[in-house]
Computed example of a mutant assay.
Amino acid sequence: MSDDQRRTELSRFLRARRQRLSPEEAGLPHAERTRRRTKGLRREEVAALAGISLPWYTMLEQGKEINVSDQVLDSLARALRLNADERMHLMYLANPRPIELRAKPSDDRPAVPPSLTYLLDQMPLVPAYISDEKLNVLAWNPLASAVFGSFESANRRERNMLWRLFMMPSSRSLFVDWELVAGSLLGHFRAMYTMHIEDVCYRSFIDELKEGSPEFAVWWDNYEVACISQNRREIAHPRVGKLNLETKLLRVEDSRDRYLNVFIPDPNDGSAARLAKLAEETPVTITT
């Protein structure tokens, strides 16, 4: 990520977090509430809560080039009531660590190594797939396709889980609590985007989603951040009925930001039996 890109993203993040926080939520119950032109907190209120000067905070929010200590960032995170994921995001943007310089595997490696496709083949009773940092599904087992909708016949965009949720009505209607699932995936995607902001493929993908989904455009500007996505999935499956699935997201070591997504059925409400029935009806060919 270039310094200019990082500072621009930091500016957007701080402004979004300041504007979403009310004086009452920030611990300012007696703040004057009439004739407020600013949604949420004013800059001077954030600066006072964090114990820093207004000119310094203003420069930070405007994306100016300034040095920031971890102590000051901690104070700012507390003032803005950031959760753990948001605090990590702030630290990364304001004071990036050497993680950016970590070695990347050679580009001549396969997108999904045979060992991972073999692993998928050994999980016939749970939906599982391999995704990348953009939420593209790279390989999947038959049950994943049977549960979430066909990946085999999908084009490149339609194999992206975020695209499916915002752009494909058939996928959207699958999830009982669509907003929770979509928000979780969007927060994870945002965190990954920040770490790969120099990748132009992200920008074109985001622009396509904003153009095709006004809902996505609004949510993107709200700037939600989550570093992992492990919310439960409650699915209204058209063939076997309700499936309650616990999400497990595991990063694959020594890979180019590859993740193993496994969905484990609730053993107590019949989901496991219904999923097993679906597995019996599904061919057993692994696809990448």
Rank of each mutant, 00 (worst) to 15 (best):
R164T: 01
I197A: 11
R239N: 06
R109P: 00
K248C: 06
H188P: 00
T247W: 15
Y193M: 11
M1N: 00
E215M: 06
T287F: 13
F216C: 02
A279W: 10
L180N: 02
E198H: 11
A272P: 00
F189W: 11
D3E: 15
H188I: 05
I66N: 07
M168D: 12
W140L: 05
A144V: 03
P265I: 09
S173F: 08
G149V: 02
Q230P: 00
I197C: 05
L101S: 09
V72K: 14
T194N: 08
N231V: 12
F263L: 12
I130K: 07
V252G: 07
E208C: 13
S153G: 03
E281Q: 14
N231P: 02
V284M: 12
P105V: 06
L73W: 13
R7P: 00
D266H: 01
S255D: 01
L275P: 03
K104V: 08
P127M: 08
R20Q: 10
R157P: 00
H89T: 08
W220V: 00
R232W: 12
L138D: 07
P98W: 03
L125P: 00
Y57M: 12
G212N: 15
G40F: 08
E25H: 14
D207Y: 12
V200W: 04
V225C: 04
V262C: 13
P29V: 08
F216S: 00
S173G: 04
M168I: 12
A154V: 03
A50L: 11
L90H: 04
L260F: 15
L250A: 13
R274N: 05
S53H: 15
R109K: 10
R239M: 15
W219I: 02
R102Y: 11
R109H: 08
G212D: 09
I197F: 10
E208K: 14
Y57C: 09
F189S: 03
N261P: 05
V112H: 05
S150W: 09
M123E: 08
E208Y: 15
W220F: 05
V200P: 05
F205T: 04
L185M: 10
G183P: 05
N268R: 10
Y193Q: 09
W178R: 04
V137H: 10
Q62A: 07
A144N: 03
S271E: 08
V200L: 06
E158K: 15
A217Y: 09
R18T: 02
E253H: 15
S204W: 15
Q71I: 12
E280R: 12
V137R: 13
D3L: 11
M195E: 01
V46Y: 06
E211Y: 14
N141E: 05
V46F: 10
R35A: 05
W140P: 02
Y202H: 11
S171M: 12
E158F: 14
W163E: 03
H188Y: 14
P265S: 09
A48Q: 12
S11I: 05
M123P: 04
E24H: 12
Q19N: 11
S11R: 07
L186Q: 03
P127W: 06
G270T: 05
R239E: 14
A182I: 08
A279Q: 03
L54A: 06
D132C: 06
A144E: 00
M168L: 15
P114D: 09
D108Y: 12
L174N: 01
A94V: 04
L162T: 03
N160E: 04
